[in-house]
Design a protein around this nucleic acid. Structure first.
Lengths: 208, 208
DNA sequence: AAAGTTCTTGACCAAACGGTCAGGAAACCG
DNA sequence: CGGTTTCCTGACCGTTTGGTCAAGAACTTT
């Protein structure tokens, strides 16, 4: 039983500043590419002071990942088995794209971690994540069985949604580079594009 | 005029070994996460000997990226303006997925680089890459104008193709973790899934 | 075989890094 | 106010890292 004392006003402020700075630095340079000095500087703290709040660089990283993982998976949890199937999935796509637009740092943090083999959150992937995905895939499979959406592999459907939406956060530099001046309204156009992409895939009755 | 002497037999062998080892290490840990010792060890060379062939860690990285970029873009170049539009694009999707399956290290190398802001290949993105993409987007726009495929934003279509196919290389750990035992034939199922996804999007006449 | 070139290495270096520690400053509390 | 806890810092430490260098080994060429 670890009796966690309530945090001081100063502790709250500084821990939050550290985590925000760490999110900036880790998402931009990866774990190894980030330095404690850099995080401390951005948080407006000295390095020893930062290490007064977190015991190590690794601890900051873990705190970030675990703290943000539930936030990151929340949209999928909202997928409502009793909703209108196609619209439910399209709403999920829309929400994920909004997340990519609003929280690109979080997206890149996980992207960095997973591309490099997810050494620190692998258990979370095979555990909670997999359970959640399986649960929602069962829902989708149910919809397919009842003919409410076109038959697709539920897991790979979810992969496609993750890939297409997070692409606009993780590969933002590339997207902007390729679009040039037309990059400004990229999220609006992406929204329309992805809605069409997945609505055509899922709407039953189309050519199969 | 840099008169590049022809490479020795030993030079050829060792440079190749270094680049292959570097691809392994850089793709797995990112630029900053990779160490010269690690690359040297994997290449079967001592560190000073490795630095005899490449002047610096950075030079190895740049040589890798620039050397592989053309390979990586080759599939898009093959998109044939005179081919059957839907089938041409589906062929491109298929080829990109095959690349993700066959060359996951290369995919991850670029993923690492771009997620972290593409500091070393940014000029290549706004230059050659953008030109190639624009050229092929014009082809796609032409197909749309002639009603040969459904109207979609060509740029974002390409983004969707990149995202969905490279996902299976870049986020392989996650894909495997979520699929569990069913991960074995993930590429076969992905192939089917993506073919359906993009064929439904592009086949004209469907609900718009 | 001799000379010249290419290849390889152990030893070394300066900088950067994650982390420690003693002790002072500030905030809190009776 | 005085005592106690919390907060903060300069100086420091051991390790890792990218990179150098002088000198020897191996290969080529004549």
């Amino acid at each position: 039983m670890t009796a966690t004392k309530p945090l001081t006003r100063i502790q709250q402020k500084n821990r939050a500043a550290i985590l925000d700075a760490a999110l900036d630095v880790f998402s931009a340079h990866g774990y190894r590419g980030a330095t404690v000095d850099q995080i401390a500087l951005q948080a407006g703290l000295s390095k020893p002071n930062l290490l007064y709040y977190f015991p190590s660089k690794d601890a900051i990283h873990v705190a970030l990942l675990t703290g943000l993982l539930s936030t990151w998976l929340a949209p999928l949890e909202q997928l409502d088995p009793d909703g209108e199937p196609v619209e439910e999935i399209l709403k999920y796509v829309d929400l994920k794209l909004t997340m990519a637009e609003t929280y690109p740092r979080e997206s890149r943090l996980f992207a960095n971690e997973i591309v490099q083999g997810a050494p620190r959150i692998h258990d979370n992937l095979t555990g909670p994540l997999r359970r959640l995905v399986d649960e929602k895939c069962a829902v989708i499979a149910g919809w397919i069985a009842r003919g409410l959406i076109a038959p697709v592999d539920p897991h790979h459907l979810i992969f496609s949604i993750w890939a297409t939406t997070q692409h606009y956060a993780d590969f933002d530099v590339q997207v902007r580079a390729v679009l040039g001046d037309a990059a400004e309204n990229r999220f609006a156009i992406a929204r329309e594009h992805l809605r069409m992409l997945f609505s055509r895939l899922l709407t039953p009755g189309a050519a199969g």
